[in-house]
Computed example of a mutant assay.
Amino acid sequence: MYSRAETAKIRKDFWTAFGLYMKPIPSAEGYRTNWQNYKTGVKNIFFRMKAERGFASIGIELNHKDEELQELVFGQFVEFRKLLEIELEESWDWELHQFDESGAIISRVQIVLQPVNVMDKNDWPKIISFLKPRIIALDAFWSNIKPAFEDF
């Protein structure tokens, strides 16, 4: 079992390694990007990557406090679903109005890799290989459709 400090250090080391691995890769628009803390530039729309004990995931998360607005934005993403799937070359799970870890209502589009464990450094290459092409594809998708979301 790991102490809280050891767990935090291992997680930090993973995301640092991921950031170093992704650092030379420019965004779809040719800019330098902080991939591990990707900024969409649109309020309440996030690209989330997680590496946990038991799974890794990547997705689009909507956390508008107004549930109707959240549903409207989610519907807008549904309109672009085919473009997203073409860019990703796979289908993801679509979840409207789910509860996150803190009990807030969110909506998300995501894919999960199981079983992997961020605490096991032997799993890091598998996690990075899972996250890397998907965050690059999300960035390419977002560079094309972001204007449709800037007014929300």
Score class of each variant (00 low, 15 high):
L72D: 14
T40S: 08
S27F: 02
S102P: 05
D93N: 13
W92T: 00
I135L: 07
L83G: 11
E87H: 02
T40E: 07
A28V: 07
G41C: 12
E89D: 14
N37A: 13
Q76H: 10
I58W: 04
A56W: 05
W35R: 00
R32C: 03
F141E: 01
F46N: 10
F74E: 00
G41F: 09
Y31V: 07
F14L: 00
I86S: 11
T33D: 01
N44P: 00
P115W: 08
T40D: 08
E85Y: 04
F14G: 08
N37M: 10
L84A: 06
R32F: 06
V116N: 03
D123G: 03
A28L: 05
Q110V: 07
V78A: 04
V78Y: 06
S102D: 12
G41T: 09
K39E: 14
L131V: 09
P125Y: 07
I106W: 05
K126S: 10
P147T: 08
A140L: 06
K50H: 08
K50G: 08
W15H: 09
R4Y: 09
I111F: 00
L88F: 04
Y31K: 14
I58Q: 02
G41W: 08
S107E: 07
K146A: 12
Y21E: 11
E89N: 13
S3T: 15
A104C: 04
L84R: 05
I60L: 14
K146M: 13
E29S: 14
F18K: 03
T16M: 06
D139Y: 05
T40A: 06
H64D: 15
A104F: 09
I127R: 01
L84C: 08
I10R: 09
F152H: 05
Q98I: 11
